[in-house]
Amino acid sequence: MINELERLCLLDGISGSESEVREYILSQIKDNAEITVDPLGNVIAFCKGRKKPKNKIMVSAHMDEVGMIVTYINSDGTLKISPVGGIDPRAVFGKRVRVGKQGILGVIGGKAVHNLSADERKKPVSFDKMTVDIGADNGEEVKKLVSLGDSVRFVSPFCRYGNGFVKCKAIDDRAGCAIMLRMIRAGVEYDTYFTFVVQEEIGLRGATAAAYTVAPDYAFVLESTTAADIPSASGADRVCELGKGPVVSFMDRHTVYDNELYELAFCVARENNIPCQTKTKIAGGNDAGAIHVSRGGVKTAAISLPCRYLHSPCCVINENDFENAYTLTKLLLDRTYNK
């Protein structure tokens, strides 16, 4: 599953430009599911099980990642950009990026530190002042290579480090996609809908349409969530911690999760000796926010990987958490099909 995660993370797909990820996923599951690609670009994969369940179940992960979009080409050949999804501009300055369909290399930088005032040195460069330099001198030259609306992606190699940690861009939410691919390949006991959705990072948009189409009784969202288990945060501010198992929340900014499913998740984890934790802060949100209010309402749970430095080029998860999230999801589905 780690190799699958590497392949998925290194594909580029900011919100609204998920086709590379979608094509890869389709190529992997075409023989294992009945597949529809809806008008937004969501992949809805129906996996026929050996049995028909009492409840219609939807498992969902999003294909898109945060990034930037080209909004203007300056006459000096630099590009103006805006963030797509929630990005701290401080995590972008001084980084390499790839631009447009050709994946042109660029860097984000500005005035040399030597020439800044003492005040300016303390101030991060905001997106409206930020430019991408691709090494060109004039706008006309650049217009042959880059178009307005082109996507700008982080360059961040996949690597394993420390005691079982994995780092790459886009782990949010290719990790969820990797778990679903593994489940689809393994086959399911009961009929199950898997949705690989678009545009989560700009407002849970793909999931809104996919949930309407699938019309599930129960939904499970596989995600990555904010862990702040770093020395600058203590107590509740750490939110959740890597290595302590998948995260099941009772509430976040978009959703009050179904209480029965919440209890069941911890019960299943306990019975099977799988570490599992909840968040100590009402923060963040995911596609559950859209799915649980779909049609007349859907009982929904999210199983998330605690992830450090979310929405930066260096997302970090723990390999054991990843494996445990897979196992917990599978066990939880088994207990829900005929609930």
Binding site: G86, P89, R90, K122, K123, P124, A228, I230, K281, S312
Partner: peptide, 21 residues
Amino acid sequence: KLIGIVTSTPPHLEKDSTAAP
């Protein structure tokens, strides 16, 4: 030779992103 990451707080939790560290 080891790999490390400079820590940052994700935008979901960061209260003040107006200062460079």
